[in-house]
Each structure stands twice: as structure tokens, then as C-alpha cells.
Design a protein around this nucleic acid. Structure first.
Lengths: 139, 139
DNA sequence: CAGAATCCACCAGGATACTG
DNA sequence: CAGTATCCTGGTGGATTCTG
């Protein structure tokens, strides 16, 4: 059974963290950036089910919340790169834990979520896509 | 700088976990249940900004997803208690991490989130409320 | 005390098209 | 390649009322 190391008496922190991570693609974006996939075009390839617009919106929020930084290279064609701030990096253990937990329980979770009527099936599995991207993302 | 222990090449797990935790009050509910605050009336007291209905909805989803279990005592007045399943417990380190991270960065986060125009101020701080509840929750 | 039934407002997120 | 402007809809979550 799970043993709590720290006595948690309040959950404000929980709400704050939820607020920061609140957005359909934010965890995935953070995960991507931490893996050095940090250009908008790469995000789009990596998350085929998301729109450029939505990704931009969520990236902007993450930026405004101080989690990531946007660097614009004044070139033609334009080049943009995102990177994690210190606070952003400090968030990664949580993202990783979510990733690991989801992977570990994938079989079970896919079943219970699939049986959920309000779950819309996404056309493509993000898995293979991301795998491809990360192989080719650095030319 | 953050050193990644496990090479993460896919983020499906991330999506699954997000799906499970997707719901405004789910993390707080899980946190509460793990702290042995597990009766509907306690939830309502603990989260004054949430409606009974919404809490019920989210509890039901958590139950359908196999994260919690609902036990109904056939009495008058009715009594209901929720508890975490094994999978639910295995999720707690993540909830805790979120709680800790949010607490640690509270000052910063409150600032950046407050300056966010689309953040609606909640009337009461959940902190004091929860503190009160946990003091009195076991009669 | 627990919870179902309505009704509804709002906004996150998706589709599309256009500019630099 | 990057970003913005519209437009639209589905669903989340809130308010209220009513039962056992």
C-alpha cells in the first residue's frame, strides 16, 4: 500500500498545478520540448490531432505562466524554438510520472476509457507518430 | 538541471493519464479520499466552489475508470463512502507531486495565474476550508 | 444524507482560410 | 515556416429544484 511521505493537509498546490497543466495538449507539449522537440512544425507533426491554432494558444499560455520561453529567430523562413524555464524543468518529474503511470497501466486504461461513451476515438495513435518524429527531428 | 532517468520516447501514457485526471475536481477528490475524507458531504464542505452534482459526476467517472470504489451503506440516513482502488493508490504519488510542486511554487504561480485575465477568482480559498474539514472529519 | 432531473452559459478546442 | 482571424459546436461545469 502507498505510504505518504509528506503529510498533505491542504490541496491549494494541487489546484495551482492543475491550472498550469490545464489544457489538452500542454503535457504533451512540455514532454516534447523536454525531449528537444521544440519547433512548432515538429509539434504539429507530433500531434496530428491538434490544430496549429490550438497548439499556439496553449504554448502561449505556458509561456505566460512562465513554464516555457519562446525564442524567435529573425530569419526567412521564420524559425521559432521553445525551451523550458527552470520552473518548467522542475515540472518534468510530474510529466514523466504521468507518462510512466499511463504506460504501465495502458492495457487497463485503454479498456476503461474506450468503454467510456463520451470518449471520441482519435484517428491516429500518437505513439508511432511521435516515435517517427523523434527519429528524424534533428535532421 | 533535470536529469531524465527513463528515456521517454512516446507519450501515449501521458494522454491516458491526462484523460483519467481530466476534470476540474478530480485531483482534489482523489487527494481527499487518500486522506480518508471520503464521504460526499465532506467533499462538499471541502470544496465549496464545486456543486454536488459536479462532484457526483466526477466521482462517477473516477469510479467507471476504476480509480475509486463506491460503497453504499443501506441505511437511513444513507451513507456512502469512497475509497481508492489499487490503481487509484498507484496514482497518488503523482497527485502528491502535483501538490508539492504547486505548494513550493505557490508564490510565483499565484502571481502568473492571477495576472491571467481568464482566471476567475474563486470566492473562498480552499486551503482553510480543507484544513478545518480534516480536523473534524473523524468525529 | 445522497442524488437525479433540468436548464443553461461559457469556453476550449476544432475547421478553414488568409498573411508575412 | 510561423501566426492570426473567423466561425462554430460540444461538452464541462454551474444553479436550481425535486425525490428517497
Amino acid at each position: 500500500m502507498y505510504e505518504r511521505k509528506i503529510p498533505l493537509t491542504i490541496d491549494c498546490g494541487l489546484h495551482l498545478t492543475r491550472e498550469i497543466l490545464n489544457g489538452k495538449w500542454k503535457p504533451a507539449l512540455l514532454n516534447a520540448i523536454s525531449m528537444d522537440i521544440k519547433r512548432p512544425s515538429e509539434f504539429v507533426r507530433m500531434l496530428p490531432d491538434a490544430t496549429r491554432r490550438v497548439l499556439n494558444v496553449q504554448l502561449k499560455e505556458l509561456e505566460e505562466h512562465g513554464i516555457i520561453v519562446k525564442k524567435i529567430y529573425p530569419q526567412l523562413p521564420p524559425k521559432v524554438e521553445y525551451s523550458l524555464t527552470d520552473i518548467g524543468w522542475s515540472l518534468m518529474p510530474i510529466i514523466d510520472a504521468m507518462n510512466v503511470w499511463g504506460d504501465k497501466n495502458r492495457e487497463f486504461l485503454e479498456k476503461v476509457i474506450a468503454q467510456d461513451p463520451k470518449t471520441k476515438k482519435t484517428s491516429k495513435s500518437p505513439c508511432e507518430v511521435l516515435r517517427k518524429v523523434s527519429e528524424t527531428s534533428h535532421h
